[in-house]
């Protein structure tokens, strides 16, 4: 079998999803023997040249330079797969999409004039065609392995788009929302993390983004019935997948 060329790219992000690739540990020898790693910022200094059979793209597009760069990556790539919440939903930095970027710049930087940035942080799919999105903050190593293996075998990855509740129930973790009135985002969040938080009795933060057909309005109603204010509900959803949750909420980026 010809080893496909793979590139791992980074835009605005924390590098955590690239680290998840490196965290595949037991499967790293398989990774490098099955793929020809041609570009991987987190793992080594390689020049960007040639074409890629598959590109893993981490991070959101939040500068003018990145808008051009993502198009270049797309043109060099047969299959473009985004990894993580930033690339799929704009990430935590998309919180600025509902604020004034000039205010933020003045608040954070001593010389705001030096900062070149776009007013909005946007998902990769807003700019180029994306073949597959792997969700999570960060992505799950097993799902990465499943996606890469499926790519090699030319099959559809067996990665579910249903709710985290499904995983919770399988693990026998009692429902935090029902039994403790905790504001758990599980019912609207994609499965995939392996129930990290609820199994430690912490409600889900929505790292894996909205599940297929998430009914945000109904969950917020359940939160309000449990005593949370509308403002608190919005804050719960405004995290690393804010852009996607807001869109799932009304389709218009507002609740």
């Amino acid at each position: 079998m010809k080893r496909p060329w793979i590139g791992v790219f980074k835009f605005t992000s924390c590098d955590g999803c690239q680290l998840s690739v490196l965290n595949m540990e037991d499967e790293l020898p398989d990774f490098v023997s099955l793929f020809q790693v041609a570009y991987f910022r987190e793992a080594g200094d390689m020049p960007l040249r040639g074409r890629f059979d598959i590109a893993l793209v981490e991070g959101s597009v939040s500068t003018g330079w990145q808008k051009a760069q993502i198009i270049e990556v797309r043109e060099r790539t047969r299959h473009l797969v985004t990894i993580g919440a930033c690339a799929a939903a704009g990430g935590l930095q998309a919180l600025r999409n509902w604020a004034d970027i000039e205010d933020y710049k003045r608040l954070v930087y001593p010389s705001p004039d030096m900062i070149e940035t776009l007013p909005c942080s946007t998902p990769v799919s807003d700019h180029v065609y994306v073949d597959y999105e792997l969700w999570g903050c960060p992505v799950n190593c097993d799902e990465l392995s499943e996606m890469l293996g499926s790519f090699l075998l030319d099959r559809k990855p067996g990665i579910p788009a249903y709710s985290l509740c499904m995983e919770c129930k399988r693990k026998g973790v009692p429902c935090l929302l029902v039994a403790k009135s905790e504001p758990c985002l599980g019912p609207v969040t994609r499965a995939g993390c392996g129930v990290l938080c609820p199994s430690m009795e912490r409600p889900c933060y929505g790292c894996f983004g909205p599940k297929e057909g998430a009914n945000i309005g109904s969950l917020l109603e359940a939160f309000r019935n449990a005593g949370f204010s509308s403002h608190e509900c919005v804050l719960l959803l405004d995290k690393m997948n804010t852009y996607a949750f807001r869109e799932a909420g009304t389709g218009e980026g507002r609740f």
């Binding site: 392995s145 709710s163 499904m166 129930k169 009914n215």
Partner: peptide, 23 residues
């Protein structure tokens, strides 16, 4: 919500699916 909780805890719900785990 379509979270699926009712089906997972229903003692008569028997639906399952098979898949090949192959990393």
């Amino acid at each position: 919500l379509e979270c699926g909780n009712c089906t997972q805890l229903c003692p008569t719900c028997f639906c399952n699916s098979t898949y090949d785990a192959l990393g």
